[in-house]
Design a protein around this nucleic acid. Structure first.
Length: 474
RNA sequence: GGCGCUAUCGUCUAGCGGCUAGGACGGAGCCCUCUCAAGGCUUAAACACGGGUUCGAUUCCCGUUAGCGCUACCA
């Protein structure tokens, strides 16, 4: 099968997670069939221009690992890939339609259109459809503002097959004479999408469900042009927890937001892939490579899916656990730098990552949940102090620190032996020393294994912190 | 309002005529344990409603209801 898919966002300033999923599905489908994945920028609305939006979009896609083969900056024979740079192509095509009587100039003013609507009209009344070609040409050359509308048949219906929804049919009587070319000379989405998908040889149009109702118009255009139509697949929407269309108001929707919050690209990609698709068995953790191998349009669901942060968190945790310390390291270093903690060796940090990997949900946690790996405790957890630092504790710890100072090898096993021996001497449980020592060394009530933590921190820090705690906590 | 799409635990979902309706997240409990996690085990929790078709419907058909989408010279 010859496959070319595309992701065709309008440059709004950021990549929406729903857009990420649409792009991902189109990408997975193309890659799986050794096809081509195209990025096309749909910027035909001049009033909605956002500076730098395309760059941000590309940046987010690249971060996520959804790499396009053709698109802005990767010009192929089908370019340009930015619609505002393709105006002549649209003009040439729409002229053809007008000449063939499949579209017509409409001179109705915005005021007239508004009046029509105010009077209860739900569709354009086709007022300009009957203007003769000659008159239309005359008025156009006289400079009268106009748009070009496509003629929709009076009756009948259009049926088409959707790869995820099956057969869909819509009566022509419910479809408006769609504007194809705006008065500013820019095409509307409907014209541009059809012309571009055809001229770019797109084989499968994979897009959001919001486009389903206008697909008949698009198919009619393919017929008007005498082109073979691509296959269509309309994806279910991503929803807010209250089931409304996923929006900014109810949380983060930009891919950049999740990136900034410390989610791994693998986790976000895995998660959005599973919003509307599953492999049919019980596996859930997938890499991009596995998704490419296993994805299938047939298994894409039809119902909208709520974007559930809790599950994303779990998935991120799973992916962090799977990631090696060395892969995680470059993700953590910039975060440490922000805190001014940038003097640690890679080796030390990888040990910290090894201990923390199973206890974090986002990468920020490697920094914020365990400051004790980067600086001496500034305070001590009050609850733990009240519970674990009794009057007799000072004596135990004082003895323990002596032993720690004389250890030949300061590793987890030796520290543990030293602590348990001390506990035995005082005839108390090891817990009577473990908890106070943890408090002294980290200032926190919980964290990784105390003995391993001690090994990673090293004798110097551990001894220093315990001595300080002995003064502070007595 | 019109048109369209959709409908299994709270959430993501499996199921493609016969199942004790399965899994995952989250919740509860237990185990492990130096704490927190991780992990293991157990548990509560769903077929929107009403008609058909059928020996038999979660599954097929038709309604109803609900949700969502579209209804721009926005995409």
């Amino acid at each position: 099968m010859f496959v070319r898919t595309r992701f065709a966002p309008s440059p709004t300033g950021y990549l929406h997670v729903g857009g990420l999923r649409t792009a991902l599905y189109a990408y997975l489908f193309a890659k799986q069939h050794q096809g081509t994945f195209i990025l096309r920028i749909e910027d035909t609305d001049q009033s909605r221009k956002v500076e730098g939006a395309t760059e941000k979009l590309i940046d987010a896609l690249e971060w996520a690992g959804v790499e396009f083969d053709e698109g802005p900056g990767k010009e192929g024979v089908y370019g340009p890939y930015i619609q505002s740079q393709r105006l002549p192509i649209y003009h040439e095509h729409v002229k053809q339609l007008v000449d063939q009587g499949k579209a017509y100039h409409c001179f109705c003013t915005p005021e007239r259109l508004e009046r029509l609507k105010a009077e209860g009209g739900t569709m354009y009344d086709r007022h300009c459809r009957n203007i003769s070609m000659d008159e239309a040409r005359r008025r156009v050359s006289a400079g009268e503002p106009n748009v070009i509308r496509m003629k929709i048949p009076d009756d009948g219906e259009l049926q088409f097959h959707d790869e995820v929804r099956g057969d869909v049919s819509i009566a022509f009587s419910t479809i408006d004479d769609q504007v194809l070319l705006k008065s500013d000379g820019f095409p509307t989405y409907h014209l541009a999408v059809v012309v571009d998908d055809h001229t770019m040889a797109v084989s499968h149009v994979i897009r959001g469900e919001e486009w389903l109702p206008s697909t008949p118009k698009h198919i009619l255009l393919y017929q008007y042009f005498g082109w073979e139509k691509p296959k269509f697949a309309h994806l279910p929407l991503l929803l807010n927890p209250d089931k409304s269309k996923l929006s900014k108001r109810q949380g983060d929707v930009a891919v950049e937001d999740y990136r900034a919050k410390g989610y791994l690209k693998d986790a976000l990609v895995n998660f959005v892939a599973f919003l509307g698709w599953n492999p049919g068995d019980e596996r859930e953790i997938f890499s991009m490579e596995e998704l490419v191998k296993e994805f299938s349009i047939e298994r894409v669901g039809k119902a909208g899916a709520v974007f559930n942060i809790e599950k994303l968190n779990w998935m991120n945790q799973q992916h962090i656990k799977l990631q090696s310390e060395s892969k995680l390291l470059p993700l953590i270093k910039p975060l440490l730098k922000l805190k001014g903690w940038d003097s640690f060796s890679d080796e030390y940090l990888q040990q910290v990552i090894g201990l923390m990997k199973e206890r974090v949900v986002v990468t920020d946690d490697f920094v914020t949940s365990c400051p004790y790996f980067y600086e001496d405790p500034l305070s001590y957890d009050e609850t733990s102090r009240a519970k674990n630092w009794k009057p007799e504790t000072t004596g135990y710890i004082a003895k323990l620190i002596e032993r720690l100072q004389t250890l030949v090898l300061f590793d987890a096993a030796s520290v543990e032996t030293a602590l348990r021996t001390t506990a035995d001497e005082f005839q108390v449980g090891a817990g009577k020393l473990i908890h106070p020592m943890r408090l002294a060394v980290s200032g926190a009530a919980n964290g990784p294994s105390l003995f391993h933590m001690a090994e990673v921190l090293g004798r110097e820090r551990v001894v220093r912190r315990i001595q300080k705690a002995l003064e502070m906590l007595r």
